[in-house]
């Protein structure tokens, strides 16, 4: 996968969590994912097209997302309820937007679809392209989350 993708999603994720939820995520070493199982309790998935096509998934552990959404809303969240799932969709949308802005500055114009949210322990993330994806693991004071990207450059980009 093009390193520009990894850098854009890494920076986009950090910006979104820092600005909207006052959480300082620490990125780990990216690795190749070989199966569909998400490594968390709730995920937001969004399709991408244009100069690159594929999809992006954000997968959060429960303690991590509860802290993130509590900070975002200024209201304590005790479980993965409708508000939390709604927020995961919005966070996915924002990370995608922020990363796409960075890709645009590299000459790659990418558009996004509407995010969907999946929850439950051991749920699976099926990427549009069906191929292997790159996972960027993040750690926060309240638990881990993962950015899961499966993208390829479109011909001519």
């Amino acid at each position: 996968m093009d390193v520009r993708f990894i850098n854009a999603f890494l920076a986009g994720t950090t910006d979104v969590l820092r600005m909207m939820a006052f959480v300082e995520p620490r990125a780990g070493k990216a690795f190749l994912k070989k199966d569909n199982a998400a490594k968390g309790d709730v995920s937001g998935v969004i399709g991408l097209t244009g100069a690159a096509r594929g999809s992006l998934a954000l997968t959060f552990s429960e303690p991590c997302i509860l802290k993130v959404v509590s900070n975002m809303l200024g209201e304590e969240q005790a479980s993965i309820n409708g508000d939390v799932k709604d927020a995961v969709g919005e966070l996915t949308n924002m990370v995608s937007g922020s990363a796409r802005k960075k890709l645009e500055s590299e000459g790659l114009s990418v558009t996004a679809a509407i995010p969907t949210v999946v929850s439950g322990s051991g749920h699976s993330i099926r990427h549009v392209l069906g191929g292997p994806s790159i996972i960027i693991p993040f750690e926060t004071d309240d638990g881990p989350f993962f950015v899961d990207v499966c993208l390829i450059l479109t011909n001519g980009s």
């Binding site: 909207m20 959404v69 975002m72 809303l73 200024g74 209201e75 508000d83 927020a87 919005e90």
Partner: peptide, 14 residues
Amino acid sequence: DFATMRKVIRNILK
């Protein structure tokens, strides 16, 4: 259209 985002913005405005 996202109730959560309305809450986020309301929280910031407050």
